[in-house]
């Protein structure tokens, strides 16, 4: 059941991205930015958790989940350590993802070359 919801919701989110690409011709950087913002806003209004409850990976794997973690981290840290949390919480919550992306990119840039299409 988790798989089905993950597939349907995840697919739907990605398809919305594709609709944006086709209709507005925006580049992948703008797509990613848009979806991160959607995640931040969903979390800010505390709408992300209810969706995540049943969509699981379907909403967490899309970059929306990254945005939601940023906002969730900031909000959680504000709750525990006050205003400073607004600055420390976001990156703390997403450090794993960012560090992994940077680390593996660096590693593989040493090994691989880009190939002509």
């Amino acid at each position: 059941m988790d798989f089905l919801w993950a597939f349907l919701i995840g697919g739907l989110v990605c398809m919305i991205g594709q609709i944006l690409i086709i209709t507005t011709k925006i580049t992948s950087a703008r797509i990613l930015v848009t979806f991160v913002l959607i995640g931040v806003v969903l979390q800010a209004f505390e709408l992300f958790e209810p969706i995540s409850q049943f969509a699981k990976a379907g909403i967490n794997v899309p970059i929306i989940g990254f945005g939601a973690s940023l906002a969730k981290g900031a909000m959680g840290a504000v709750k525990s350590i006050g205003l400073l949390g607004a600055f420390t919480g976001g990156l703390e919550a997403t450090a794993g993802g960012i560090a992994a992306a940077v680390g593996f990119a660096f590693l593989f840039s040493l090994i691989f070359k880009s190939k002509t299409k």
């Binding site: 690409i21 580049t27 992948s28 880009s114 190939k115 002509t116 299409k117």
Partner: peptide
């Protein structure tokens, strides 16, 4: 050259876009 023009004017070759 396709690959020099891509990296100068557009995107990295391995970027997954359409």
């Amino acid at each position: 050259h396709f690959s020099t023009a891509e990296r100068q004017f557009r995107f990295p070759l391995e970027l997954g876009n359409q």
